[in-house]
Simulated scan of single mutants.
Amino acid sequence: MSVMVVGQIGRDVVLQTPELSGTGGTHPVRERREMLGGKGANQAVGLAQLGVPVGLIGVVGADEPGASALEQASSDGIDTTHVIRRGTTALVVSVVDDSANRLLLEHVPQHALLTPDDIDRGRPGLLAADTVSVQLQQPISSTLRAARQGRQAGALVLADGAVDLDHSDELFELVHVFRADADEAELVAGEPVKTPAAAMALATRILHKGPVLVALAISGVGDLLVWRNGSRLFPLSDAPVVDRTGAGDAFMAGLIAALRRDADPVQAGHLATAAASSTVGHLGGRPQLDGLRHA
């Protein structure tokens, strides 16, 4: 049995510069990194590093970057059997300065997004998985199809990202675990979610719609986990932040790895926040979680 991650695969280019300011002039690049990226791939890499058997359903281009992404994913121990190839590979360029300010440039063509037919092609992988993790940055028709198939197969179903409000009730009925960052939580709530009390109120409303565990990030505060009979706030780490890219993906990898070994929500929250803290300490969204494998 394994985890099947449904989400974006692409190429990440990360540039570090001393300061992001103004719109003109020249900004020197101190460091440049190119790597396998995308929220789905980052999460799958993190899971593999934590010792979890994992596969991907996503799209890469029928181009050299796509071939390179597949080669890297395979070398990371990720099953790419159900990855679709077409068009050009999605690209994200991230410019990060010494204060962890970030500018993102994204080229994600429509053909780089999953369709319901793509999900159906990956159905054998979904049926074989004990856990299905769906990134909500994909079209709602595709994410609902994946969540529904995972639920019908008896898998633990998780969803991460911004919810299409027209389909939120349908989604929440299908997932066991829902996670959102601060901006995504605000979209669900229809108002800022800046305090633990506001996050608790939102999480409670979501729990009443179906999930058994909700994780919400609170900007500048930390991560709140809420379940049917309890809650726990995990404050932000004091560790220096180099680049916030990929923190949420690492959080999900840690959460999934812990839940699959029957950890309780508090134990799962500790591993998830440790994974996120580890990831913001280096440049780029690719996680480095091998040291947490036995945590």
Rank of each mutant, 00 (worst) to 15 (best):
A197G: 12
A197I: 13
A198R: 11
M200V: 02
M200W: 01
A201C: 03
A201W: 00
L202A: 04
A203Q: 03
A203L: 04
T204G: 09
T204M: 01
R205H: 06
I206Q: 15
I206L: 15
H208L: 14
K209E: 14
K209F: 05
G210N: 10
G210V: 06
P211N: 14
P211V: 12
V212H: 14
V212S: 15
L213Y: 05
A215K: 00
L216T: 01
L216Y: 03
S219N: 14
S219I: 08
G220Y: 01
G220P: 01
V221H: 06
V221S: 03
G222V: 07
G222H: 08
G222I: 10
L225V: 14
V226T: 15
V226P: 05
V226L: 13
W227I: 11
W227C: 08
N229H: 13
N229E: 15
N229R: 14
G230P: 10
L233S: 06
P235R: 12
P235Q: 09
L236H: 09
L236E: 10
L236I: 13
S237R: 12
S237P: 13
D238C: 05
D238Y: 04
D238G: 10
V241M: 12
V241S: 11
V242R: 13
V242T: 15
D243Q: 09
D243T: 10
D243F: 05
R244Q: 06
T245I: 10
A247G: 06
A247M: 04
G248F: 02
